[in-house]
């Protein structure tokens, strides 16, 4: 126990020497905890996010991830014959809905997005309208890209569009939540060395992970195994959700381990 505590103190010292982070203050704040519970807490999490922001990120990610699980498990209780393969579109919609609602709620509660300059109702409304338009546009964009990748044009348009909606909810919605309907900020974040906060980095990671997941999900389709998950678009949507979950886990961990390298320019 005490060795863990010593390790942590050392770690904080090193940290504070390396950069002026809030790490030590976090430790001081957490002094009110009993040391024992505190260390248990560290071991339980394995990778510990001391920083306030990383902690917030980890917990919000945990909530989002659990919402995905709930969206998979809960309908199975209520709806007869619900399964991920059998009623795939239903599962897809439930995940989409859960992820969007939870994302919006979490980010609204956390108040991450840039503070708005004007606080009038009209301005808020216009932001809302623009956000909706972006969501729609992104659905269409994903649909086009998926069709360009070789999805049938007319035959299973509904399935393709559902996949596009899922991808939108996993990527674009998060962008909207974090950055707001601001294309220039988006371009900044997604260009090289453009991240300006941990949230930007986590956004990059989750978006990349979900897209790569969907991309990898397309590979098993040509195999002639005749499995239920090879049906369009099951493997792609599964891949994207798995990628998204991976991104949710990886983002805080990666940020934590690369704290030294991550130097953000001032906002």
């Amino acid at each position: 126990m005490s060795s863990g505590n010593a390790w942590f103190r050392n770690y904080c010292l090193r940290k504070s020497l390396n950069e002026n982070s809030q790490c030590t203050s976090a430790y001081r704040k957490s002094g009110s905890f009993s040391n024992l519970t505190f260390v248990a807490f560290c071991y339980a999490y394995f990778i510990i996010m001391w920083d306030h922001e990383i902690k917030a990120m980890a917990s919000s990610h945990a909530i989002i991830a659990s919402s995905v699980f709930m969206a998979t498990v809960l309908p199975a209780v209520f709806i007869q014959g619900f399964s991920v393969y059998g009623t795939h579109l239903l599962w897809l919609y439930s995940v989409t809905g859960a992820v969007s609602v939870v994302n919006i709620a979490v980010f609204w509660l956390l108040g991450i997005s840039q503070p708005t300059k004007k606080n009038t109702l009209g301005y808020k409304l216009s932001r809302l309208v623009r956000s909706c338009m972006y969501l729609l546009l992104s659905c269409l964009f994903y649909h086009t890209v998926v069709v360009l990748y070789g999805a049938p044009l007319i035959e299973s348009a509904l399935e393709t569009f559902s996949l596009a909606v899922l991808l939108t909810s996993l990527t674009t919605l998060r962008c909207l939540c974090v950055l707001g309907p601001n294309v220039q900020a988006w371009i900044r974040v997604f260009s090289r060395h453009g991240a300006m906060s941990v949230w930007d980095t986590s956004l990059q990671i989750t978006v990349a992970c979900s897209l790569i997941g969907a991309w990898l999900g397309a590979f098993p389709i040509p195999l002639d195994w005749d499995r239920p998950w090879q049906v369009w678009p099951v493997s792609c949507s599964l891949g994207s959700v798995v990628g998204y979950l991976t991104g949710l886990v990886v983002a805080p961990a990666w940020i934590h381990f690369h704290r030294k390298q991550l130097t953000y320019k001032s906002k």
């Binding site: 990748y149 040509p222 195994w225």
Partner: peptide
């Protein structure tokens, strides 16, 4: 994998995209 050999065009189209 024999299926990937049979459907090699899919791999290339995918990579090209």
């Amino acid at each position: 994998a024999s299926s990937f050999v049979e459907e090699e065009h899919q791999t290339w189209y995918f990579l090209l995209n």
